[in-house]
Design a protein around this nucleic acid. Structure first.
Length: 598
RNA sequence: GGCCCCGUAGUUCAAGGGAUAGAACAAAAGUUUCCUAAACUUUAGAUCCAGGUUCGAGUCCUGGCGGGGCUACCA
């Protein structure tokens, strides 16, 4: 009958309800269970869960300590799963019986999907990556890709239907610059002829453009022009400008070149996505959606929620909402960034009829997404309310912000490669993989290198900015991906020797480290929910490292295969097995693989 | 100027208004006849400043100081 209190119950909630009942009985006063604070007991104190009685002193008309004692006695007597209690000041620490925790454990065993939530019927479109097509991906994109992918996995585990999509900013002056530079100095070279990855190849010409422009600017600077002004006077800039106009006009030659160069870039990007293990169902292109946006602007003008200025430009007035007026169409009728996003949003809803639209985009666009949402709300779009900007902080280098123009970036491909070779070096040094063949080794180094990189990025809360020091590189020891992976590999080593254990009793005594493991496993479903609610993989990352740490302590303190009794041995093997499964589950939520051996 | 975000050990990160602010790296010391020492166990070390709200503040409010972002007919 205790089963009704186990897996599907939120024990903290249950405890606050029980406490409210106790208060009613003992003090004859009604208190809402929501007002009762329950926490996990801090590790320096004895107990599983803790009830805070300071706020209850008013209703009990006794000291917090006496209140805690009253409630503790009552609960011990009237709630069969309570083993014992102790009080420290206004804190009531409750211990639950081992048999209760063993029942929790047995239920977990019988539900291999424990941690996942049932389908909610909620459909979510998640946009991430969103690169420009004129240069290769860098560390900032890595953070975006890892966050976006992981959030998608977490939301799926929470029971939502998730459609991942990408958006390519594939048009505009930046791409034209690469094109101009390639025409001038490319000598007909291609990624194939040079053996350079497509996105890097095109990126080189973006840099090349800047060189030409600087060179040509000199004479104008000498005449005393401002830097920006001078740049616009250069012939190379004028060519780029001209190319942009031709592009907009649909000039065949320009379009063909544009297609060719973007094609190179996509090939390169796809390689990087594959290496990182990220993907998406559909890609949108701003070269398509900017036109769709114009229709929405027209619609807004008809509905009277936008207005036209004398020069012909179209605006939306958001001053009532505490923002500014924002431009939607230039006076020459061309669209701006916001116009494109309106079009993309509309198209996306047509494609997927989702309830929520998530945008994983850096926090420098916080304002933009406020504007986007408000504008669509003004238009009365049904999908507007479901728009959510998942805003993440910049990745800083020790010298400050990354600046692609100054070459102060960390290239995504380089970084992945560096991490893989670092883990290779370390693994070979430790010498535990003699029995693996060449391809197994390659897989392992990749799993470990990516694990280190991904964990390093994802353990930091998305909304915070984070620092990356390329000098120090990424650790393989301590609070890292390989630490968790190592724990998993250890477990697999045990299971290779004896995996047939069956355990279903509730009458053995638990060691502290065993009980801690059951307790943390018990929280998994709730942790997934919390991560999903906050769109925050770091919740999963810190849970996973805690789980691995607790297992490593258990492993050091308690013999598994050489346990004293069969019951203990079977229990410990079963426990190890579940810990391994849940580590793999959590790491998968982070987009990280785990090895059987390392 | 206006708006938004952020200041926690030497460093990188944690802490749903609750106990003595947790980890990891770096530093110091220990643990391999026993399931993988990428591990485990110790030691030392922090809430930017000043007020306020509260039984209780790293967390909430006000004002400083410091850092970052946005505020383009750029994306």
């Amino acid at each position: 009958m205790w089963l009704i209190y186990t897996l599907m119950t939120n024990l903290e909630k249950e405890l606050s309800i029980k406490a409210a009942e106790a208060i009613k009985e003992v003090y004859k006063t009604d208190v809402s269970s929501e007002s009762i604070a329950v926490n996990l007991t801090k590790k320096d104190f004895e107990g599983d869960y803790t009830l805070v009685t300071f706020p209850l002193a008013r209703t009990s008309k006794k000291s917090p300590e006496e209140t805690a004692n009253d409630l503790g006695s009552f609960l011990e007597e009237h709630w069969e799963i309570v083993d014992q209690f102790n009080t420290v000041k206004g804190f009531l620490n409750l211990n639950f019986k081992d048999s209760f925790w063993l029942n929790v454990f047995n239920e977990m065993q019988s539900d291999p999907d424990y941690g996942k939530h049932p389908p909610t019927g909620n459909k979510v479109v998640l946009e991430y990556i969103g690169p420009n097509t004129n240069k290769p991906l860098h560390l900032g994109h890595i953070r975006n890709m890892l966050l976006g992918f992981s959030i998608g996995e977490i939301l799926e585990a929470r029971g939502h239907e998730v459609v991942k999509v990408n958006i390519y900013n594939d048009r505009g002056i930046a791409i034209c610059k690469s094109m101009v530079a390639w025409l001038r100095n490319g000598e007909g070279k291609t990624p194939e002829s040079t053996g350079i990855k497509g996105d890097h190849f095109v990126g080189q010409f973006y840099v090349e453009y800047a060189k030409i422009e600087d060179e040509e600017s000199k004479s104008f600077l000498d005449k005393g022009m401002e830097k920006e002004e001078a740049a616009k006077e250069t012939s190379v800039y004028k060519e780029a400008q001209e190319m942009l106009i031709k592009w907009e006009a649909g000039d065949k030659e320009v379009r063909a070149l544009w297609k060719k160069m973007n094609g190179w870039v996509y090939e390169g990007f796809n390689e990087t996505y594959k290496k990182l293990g990220v993907g998406y169902k559909k890609a949108y292109h701003e070269s398509d959606t900017y036109i769709l946006g114009k229709n929405l602007v027209e619609e807004g003008l008809e509905k009277g929620c936008f207005y036209k200025k004398e020069d012909g430009s179209v605006w939306v007035d958001l001053t009532d909402e505490g923002l500014d007026e924002k431009i939607l169409l230039r006076s020459d009728g061309t669209s701006v960034y916001l116009t494109q996003d309106l079009g993309t949003a509309q198209e996306r809803f047509k494609d997927f009829k989702m309830n929520d639209s998530l945008y994983v985009v850096g926090n420098e666009q916080d304002y933009h997404f406020q504007v986007l949402k408000l504008t669509l709300q003004k238009l009365g779009k049904e999908y507007a309310d479901g728009i959510r900007h998942i805003s993440y902080g910049m990745v800083d280098l020790p010298e400050g912000k990354m600046k692609s123009r100054e070459g102060k970036t960390i290239d995504a491909d380089d970084l992945v490669e560096e991490m893989v070779s670092k883990s290779e070096e370390h693994t070979i040094e430790l010498g535990k993989i003699e029995d693996l063949d060449e391809s197994e080794r390659g897989d392992l180094f990749r799993i470990l290198g990516l694990g280190a990189l991904k964990y390093f990025i994802l353990k930091v809360q998305a909304k915070k900015r984070m620092l990356f020091n390329p000098e120090q590189s990424i650790e393989l020891q301590g609070d890292t991906g390989p630490f968790v992976q190592y724990t998993y590999a250890r477990i697999q080593a045990i299971l290779r020797r004896d995996a047939g254990a069956v355990f279903n009793k509730d009458n053995i005594n638990l060691n502290p480290s065993e009980k801690e493991l059951i307790k943390i496993l018990y929280r998994l479903a709730e942790v997934v929910d919390e991560a999903a609610r906050n769109y925050d993989p770091s919740v999963i990352a810190s849970y996973t490292i805690d789980l691995a740490k607790l297992y490593n302590r258990f492993y050091a303190e308690v013999p598994v295969l050489k346990a004293e009794s069969d019951d203990e041995k079977n229990f410990r093997i079963s426990l190890s097995k579940i810990v391994g499964e849940k580590i793999r589950f959590c790491m998968a939520l982070l987009g990280i693989e785990v090895p059987d051996q390392m």
